[in-house]
Design a protein around this nucleic acid. Structure first.
Lengths: 340, 340
DNA sequence: ACGTTTGGCCCAAACGTTTGGGTGCTGCAT
DNA sequence: ATGCAGCACCCAAACGTTTGGGCCAAACGT
């Protein structure tokens, strides 16, 4: 059913119907008499009329669509952020569509172009690289966007967790437990998350007079395989093996736990381990994992809200959310025997 | 840049440009001379022309959009299925947009209505309930859809894993290991996945002359908390405590592992545990989890392909993919001591 | 009684495509 | 010469909205 249809059935002009249906329910519009307005509204929802977004979008130059880019949605962190984003978008009558870029700059450009071709009103970018690659596309100069989860060194507007602080919290915790020889599974160098968490951690240890040798910070993929691999390297050291590891995300930490097991090391006793993000499942692991809780869905919501304000023409500023340490047995918490 | 723009710059009519740009690159179109066609194409990609999908959609009544409904994207199973779906959609020039329904029928209806209002060409539904609730919306009679992961008892077209077989495989495995007293963490009763896996499992045990008492099959949420809770119930039995548990999905299994640990039971020695889906991380757990591998991304791809054929007017039939058992230590695999 | 407001509606253009149907021209066979 | 077939285009309507600008009658002020 179209506006036309409704107008004809009521013997009115389509523009009248349009105005009535767009005016706010309550306020007295100048579009039509109260009676006419009522008749229009009744017929409209009797017929289950929904404006055709293609027509509306064509006319108004607003698609009410936002595009969301993520490295991969099957990473729970990104999926959760997206849940928040979609919720916020839906509550404003927008639809969101997501696409996976696998952290490949060529694919990022391609997807951004595709998303822009769809005439989105804005985009939320969750796969930014520190160097801002792919963010230089000409289309991005005219369509607003907000980064989420990861920032760039160029300082594009973003909503992130205070990753540096998160890293410091872990360092603080491990220092308090007496760990002087530690290692970091640092994630991919192009992601600000890993880089900042590592930096905060290393910085705190440096402040404590225990600077980490370069060999103690190893990059890795963000998945379990990457964590396992990196942990193998770190734990295989014969002399002065680290007594604690900090993995910059939970999945790498789970991989690291696997590596520790392979080497016959008991988590929380022979070696301490901390992750990041406090993914729901880590508390349930056989040895519950110490992790840094970061408000992920909230990041998604805020990114969308920020984007919407930007679309509305407001000036906007980056937002940084505060993380919290969740100490558990993997670092020798309540149940385990004291570490060291 | 619009078609109009290009046409003007070249002194041609917009329709000519349209025909050239829509005709296939190679074939000789009747729209324009080879020379004109070349000029049009050159200018078009020099200007980076992209057709406005709102205008195209309005005219052709095809949005090139498909909607995807999932319970929640932060469940890795659904996220992976969506990855496959998005990949397939993108390769056909379509965009997909996902929305979370949290398995709440009211929200399902609302979202389906919203998605239909967007004039999608079709939808992939990953959150179907066995009873087909929410699938009776009038709009779904005119817009094609395909179910994925879960089927309905009404037999809507779907792409699923052979869940019943998967359940049987686990039963077979546990029987071979000598387990006569087992329990099932059965998931939500409204999801065919859990129901079918449970049924296959129970059926195989019945065939083996070991019918499960009703108390040995407990429903649960699909997350870790649900699994933990259900496992507590099953393992708390004083006499004739089950020696093996089958959780119908990996996350419930992880929760169950947590419960076992709380009760001082060692996985793969005191109690065997199997999950379902072979989520990437379960192989990395401290005690690697036996699970049933199901091709998730493939399900997503197939669902989209099926949908596209349906949109093109073909008759389509449900597809069922075959699962495989991945035996690991949690059921007393290679490394653990023999169970029982 | 006469101008002015304002309420209630209609008109028509525009957004950017696609597509069925022209039209005029060239070249060829009759 | 005449008919006819292509070719290379153009024309215009349509898809379903929104929106600036009318227009007419009733109400109002003086």
């Amino acid at each position: 059913m179209t506006l036309q249809g409704i107008a004809e059935q009521l013997g009115l002009h389509v523009s009248t119907v349009s105005r009535v249906l767009n005016g706010r329910q309550d306020g007295h519009t100048r579009a039509a008499s109260g009676d006419t307005a009522r008749r229009i509204r009744n017929l409209a929802d009797e017929l289950g009329y929904r404006p055709n977004p293609l027509a509306t979008g064509l006319r108004t130059r607003r698609s009410n669509l936002i595009g969301v880019l993520v490295p991969r949605l099957s990473e729970i962190v990104m999926a959760t952020i997206y849940e928040g984003a979609e919720e916020a978008a839906a509550s404003h009558g927008l639809s969101a569509f997501v696409t996976n870029t696998h952290d490949d700059p060529a694919l990022q450009r391609e997807r951004i172009t595709m998303v822009l071709a769809r005439r989105v009103d804005g985009l939320v970018i969750g796969d930014a690289h520190l160097d801002g690659a792919a963010l230089d596309l000409p289309g991005l100069r005219t369509t607003p966007f907000v980064l989420v989860n990861r920032r760039t060194s160029a300082g594009h507007t973003s909503v992130t967790c205070d990753d540096r602080l998160g890293g410091r919290l872990v360092a603080e915790h491990l220092l308090a437990l007496g760990h002087t020889s530690v290692g970091v599974i640092a994630g991919e160098p192009f992601a600000s998350t890993g880089a900042d968490r590592t930096e905060g951690f290393v910085e705190r240890y440096r402040e404590a007079g225990l600077p980490l040798p370069a060999s103690r910070v190893v990059h890795s993929a963000f998945d379990t395989a990457g964590g396992r691999h990196a942990a193998h390297n770190l734990l295989a050291m014969q002399e002065d093996r680290p007594t604690a590891l900090f993995a910059v995300n939970d999945f790498a930490a789970i991989g690291a736990a696997g590596a520790a097991r392979d080497l016959g090391l008991r988590l929380g006793r022979d070696v301490a381990l901390a992750g990041f993000n406090d993914t729901p499942l880590v508390a349930e692991l056989p040895v519950p994992l110490t992790s840094v809780h970061s408000p992920m869905a909230e990041q998604g919501r805020r990114a969308v809200n920020l984007l919407l304000r930007r679309i509305a023409g407001e000036e906007i500023r980056s937002e940084i959310l505060t993380p919290h340490l969740m100490a558990r047995e993997s670092t020798g918490g309540p149940v385990g025997a004291p570490l060291l």
